[in-house]
Amino acid sequence: MSLDRLISISDLKKIYTKKIKSILGIVNSDLRLLSSNFWNRSLEYPVVTEEVLAALILKFLLGLESSVKLGEILCEIKLSKLENFSKILKRIIASNELKPFNISGFLLFTDFKYPDTLSSEINFWNFWSERKPVEIKNFDEYFNDFMEFLSNNSLFIEYLKGLCNVDENTFNLLLEFALEKIVLVEKQIFKWYGADGFTTYDRKIYIKLFETDCPVMNKAAIFYVLLHELCHYFRRTSCLTWEDSRNCSTPETSIDGIPLSEAGNIFEIQFFGDRHRFLNKSVCEFFLSSTETLSREEYSTKFAFINRTRGRFFVSLMRGACLGEKNIVELSGCAFSKHRGYD
């Protein structure tokens, strides 16, 4: 029909819109019921694949219905041969260790209203449709080092403990549980979200495997990102359902006159003096080995000073841009920050 020059673009949009409304009229009640079951499901219980699919496909249809670029989007979908949309989604949801990551990621990011947001999702679907193996590691090799790292930086512990307002024993149990569930994932998976870390709605933490030639810098980057993600984790410890977690928000805090309402970003600025675009080797060494008794203000000032640019370092204008230096590890940010427009 779109090749028929007798049919105007406005008429095509009307035809497409009518078809989508017709589909929604048929499936809306069933999809809403299943979707509601998913959002009200306890975080302690396994998800039901059909309920997750319903939540995603309902968002897909509602996005198309309200899109002002409907014709372009349907053309993109057609060209990408996504006839097996639900099969690809089901494969993604059934991906074992990455299941919470994929479910939360899709529910956060999937936006079918605009072609530019759709393109990255199409790439992600195509990636999964090709069944490529994914490199995954647990946190075991870093567990003891991170616990020792926290013991040398009690300021971090006190801050995180304050986010969930629990006694010390409960906090320690929650922390150990969080660390045991961490999944380190190859950077390709994070590429589609332009992020280094992600805490899912059901409180599982995923962190990118950093791949510099320096193990100290890789470890420092993982710990830096983990501290950010733990802020999201401890904000959600009282959440009971997926809906609770989705609606969990951070009270707005003003720093230097700038209002902030994202837990990890607030933490970074308060403790590290900035949301750093990179970590140089010197600050990585300081970060991992420091046992100095400093106030939060003193620590953040020193961290930012050591991580300053010098010589021929080029400071990118956007977080995650390539700096091309061997003595730095680049940072892209948090998936929740990206979704909520903080980067």
Rank of each mutant, 00 (worst) to 15 (best):
L6K: 15
I7T: 09
Y16I: 06
Y16D: 14
K19I: 15
I20H: 06
L24K: 08
I26F: 13
V27E: 09
N28A: 00
R32H: 11
L33F: 11
F38C: 01
W39R: 02
W39L: 13
W39H: 07
V47S: 08
T49S: 04
L53S: 06
L61K: 11
L62S: 11
L62W: 06
S66A: 15
S67I: 15
G71T: 14
G71K: 14
E72R: 05
E76Q: 15
E76G: 10
I77E: 14
I77M: 14
L79V: 12
L82K: 14
N84W: 02
L89A: 02
R91A: 13
A94Q: 13
A94S: 15
F101I: 00
G105R: 00
T110C: 12
D111H: 11
L118E: 04
S120L: 03
K132H: 14
P133F: 12
K137V: 00
N138M: 01
F143H: 08
L150R: 02
L160K: 01
K161Y: 06
G162V: 06
N165W: 12
L173P: 00
L175W: 03
F177T: 11
Q188C: 13
K191L: 07
G194R: 08
F198I: 05
T199N: 11
T200P: 00
I207N: 00
K208S: 15
A220E: 02
F223W: 09
Y224S: 04
V225F: 10
V225D: 03
L227T: 09
E229D: 11
Y233L: 06
F234M: 01
R236Q: 14
L240P: 03
E243V: 07
C248D: 10
I258R: 15
R275N: 13
R277V: 05
F278I: 07
V283R: 10
L288G: 11
E298C: 07
K302E: 15
I306S: 05
R308A: 14
G311R: 02
F313V: 00
F314H: 08
V315N: 07
M318K: 06
M318V: 04
G320H: 02
C322E: 08
I328N: 01
C334A: 07
A335H: 00
A335K: 01
S337M: 07
H339K: 13
